[in-house]
């Protein structure tokens, strides 16, 4: 009897170790696949459409965070460079497993706007959503491939952490208390993505040598594609342009 108990405990522990690590925590860390990187800039050519103003008269705590009239930065162009573009590798990758980004993806509700407006996350990567405003925001996610959620954060400083387990480009986030508040979460099954800042630049690192197809996505301007080849430990440039 004693021998049986010892033997079966061993099997139980073995069985536990290799279990599903899908929702974070249990999976063993994966080393980076390489050191190469793709860099570049996303440009906008033509006259940028005017972004709508936001009537925040009813939200003085948010309105106070703006110097002028609040504007919804849907198409954010400065010096010909386009911000809030989500770029990812869509082809040419070796098979996984891929390393999970070490930090959670973060998105903030600040001044009654989501910032950043666009973020990328890997499947299973924690996404931290923080309320920086002293008022109620809710976060409504309406994915089609993942489980939707609709939760609220009534106080400043509150943070919620969520994960998506299925790739989906892109999942819209809303706040219904402030109907103009939109954000986009792009969920990918690998970590080779980036979002452009105000200067339009991006870097995707940790790649092995190879030729990669890349797609850039903007919430209203559609997508642009390109292809780039990188040497091992090297860097290659890919610039893409969206038109007006």
């Amino acid at each position: 009897m004693r021998r049986f108990l010892v033997a079966s405990s061993v099997f139980v522990f073995l069985g536990c170790g290799g279990g599903d690590g899908g929702s974070g925590g249990g999976a063993a860390a994966v080393d980076p696949l390489g050191n190469a990187s793709i860099t570049g800039a996303i440009s906008f050519v033509g006259t940028a459409p005017a972004n709508p103003t936001i009537d925040m008269a009813d939200e003085p705590d948010c309105e106070a965070k703006f110097t002028g009239t609040p504007v919804d930065p849907i198409v954010s162009v400065s010096d010909g460079k386009l911000a809030n573009v989500f770029i990812r590798v869509v082809g040419g990758l070796p098979d996984g497993p891929y390393p999970m980004p070490s930090e959670p993806a973060r998105i903030n509700q600040d001044g009654c706007l989501y910032s950043p407006r666009v973020i990328g996350a890997m499947v299973g990567q924690p996404i931290e959503i923080t309320n920086s405003d002293p008022l109620l925001h809710n976060i409504k996610a309406m994915p089609t491939e993942n489980r939707p959620f609709n939760i609220s954060q009534p106080r400043a400083g509150m943070t919620t952490t969520r994960r998506f387990n299925t790739p989906e480009v892109v999942i819209p986030l809303e706040c219904n208390v402030h109907g103009w508040m939109n954000a986009y979460v792009a969920v990918v099954d690998h970590p080779y993505f980036a979002v452009t800042g105000a200067d339009g630049s991006f870097t995707i690192g940790g790649l092995p040598a190879g030729t990669y197809q890349v797609e850039a996505w903007h919430e209203t301007l559609g997508t642009q594609s390109g292809e780039v080849t990188v040497e091992a430990d090297g860097s290659a440039t890919l610039d893409l342009t969206f038109g007006g």
């Binding site: 939760i151 609220s152 509150m158």
Partner: peptide, 13 residues
């Protein structure tokens, strides 16, 4: 749990 009352403050939902 956090989904009901984070820090003891009830969520609206």
């Amino acid at each position: 749990p956090e989904t009901m009352a984070p820090g003891g403050f009830l969520l609206p939902e």
